[in-house]
Design a protein around this nucleic acid. Structure first.
Lengths: 233, 233
DNA sequence: ATTATATATTGTACCGGTACAATATATCAA
DNA sequence: TTGATATATTGTACCGGTACAATATATAAT
């Protein structure tokens, strides 16, 4: 792990340990530098990270304060804001409906930047949050990158496997969403009625070198989500 | 405007002028430094900004490449990713339904961190995208911060007025969303049927010093939105 | 050709520094 | 007490540098 990521964790721990509440002041930059024995730029990068995660906000001339405007029951759809923690915090589990190697749809091939004859792993899952259906997820993985998948892996965390198991570096993702009505099939998987509202999210995940490796289409039920935004531009 | 923000704009212009497409390579860091006559850290900050806006991605040892995975018709709900541009690009207009000074609801007072007897500006608007109803928006502004509003201001851009007119510095915002069904009243404003799906978004906007000044509740119709995410953590 | 190996390229982490703007606090005047 | 003014605090922009990891390219070996 990078140094500044580690410092960010340390600062989160500090907040936890000292039971700091919303609006409470953290030690000043100078103190954080000496406390963790790192340079100013490292602390600054750590604090930037914590800002994007919505943990703190900084006021020039004043100090660093706890933000943490958290609402209970709201998960993060944006993977950079604690997506991993979602899984543990909300006891998200999943059931595999389908797993096979196949040729991509035109749409999948386009988004994965591969040809129609290249192989993909197709995965269809239902995810549950505290036992209740949360979403229906269809994923297409570029098989030349994600060379092997099995039932056990996709029941656990695919992304852990991709990073730790395959040694790949996940970089960025593009997400597209809209709202719509559930089809009969979707409603069936989620235990709802046809025509009920849904949040539909398409994501294309890329490696750090820009290669897309995962194209996913997720249909959410009555999901509640939380975002933290930085400065308006 | 800050130097690195300016460089970010210059780089966007460069992409435009040279008609760079997705995956095309930009000049290397060294060249950008000398071309714009700024230090490495300034270029780096500019590029960081462009990464969060989904314009470029950087690959160590390789170069800087154009991302711009844009889909037509998708707006940005996240204010840090070109919210302002939405207004021009999609010809978003608005009609004021109501504007008055009143006492806040319990909910608004809580989110604005004020007392029940403090005054707020209440604004109710319908926003249109290319003439079609897009959303119904109810906003509560802390009157001790946003001291004056009128019909003209809120028909134009409130945020322009807040920054340029009042000289306030907008810092960050917390957003919460979920999906639901339209009430009869909402459906009426949006020209839809009761029970149709909606995207409901609550936002709390803060000044750079952490003070909340705007609590807004927005009910979207069949909105399509696009997000750009950085590294998975 | 193909594969392994060395070399050059290139962005990023990290260091330490100066200048400054925004804010808070102390001081003084009315 | 109030309000203006000076002073100290504190985070951020910006500079320039070293070290290094990831990648691409050239070179050599098979």
């Amino acid at each position: 792990m990078l140094k500044y990521q580690h410092i960010a964790e340390e600062i989160e721990n500090y907040i936890e340990e000292h039971k700091l509440q919303q609006g409470d002041k953290l030690p000043v930059l100078q103190d954080l530098m000496s406390q963790f024995e790192v340079s100013k730029s490292t602390v600054t990068k750590a604090l930037e990270l914590l800002e994007t995660k919505g943990v703190v906000f900084q006021v020039r001339g004043s100090g660093i304060f706890v933000r943490r405007h958290k609402r209970k029951g709201y998960i993060s759809l944006l993977s950079n804001q604690g997506f991993k923690k979602n899984l543990e915090e909300f006891q998200i589990t999943s059931k595999v409906i389908q797993l096979d190697v196949r040729k991509p749809t035109t749409e999948a091939a386009l988004n994965l930047n591969i040809g129609p004859d290249d192989d993909v792993y197709y995965v269809k899952r239902v995810r549950y949050i505290q036992g209740q259906p949360l979403c229906l997820e269809e994923s297409y993985f570029n098989k030349s990158i994600v060379t092997y998948l099995n039932n056990e892996i996709i029941t656990e965390s695919i992304f852990n496997y991709i990073t730790d198991g395959l040694g790949l570096n996940v970089g960025f993702s593009d997400m597209f969403l809209h709202i719509d009505k559930l089809t009969e099939e979707e409603a069936g998987y989620l235990g709802l009625e046809k025509g009920d509202p849904k949040l539909y999210v398409e994501s294309i995940f890329h490696l750090t070198n820009g290669q897309p490796f995962d194209f996913s289409k997720v249909t959410y039920n009555y999901v509640q989500s939380q975002f933290f935004i930085q400065a308006v531009i």
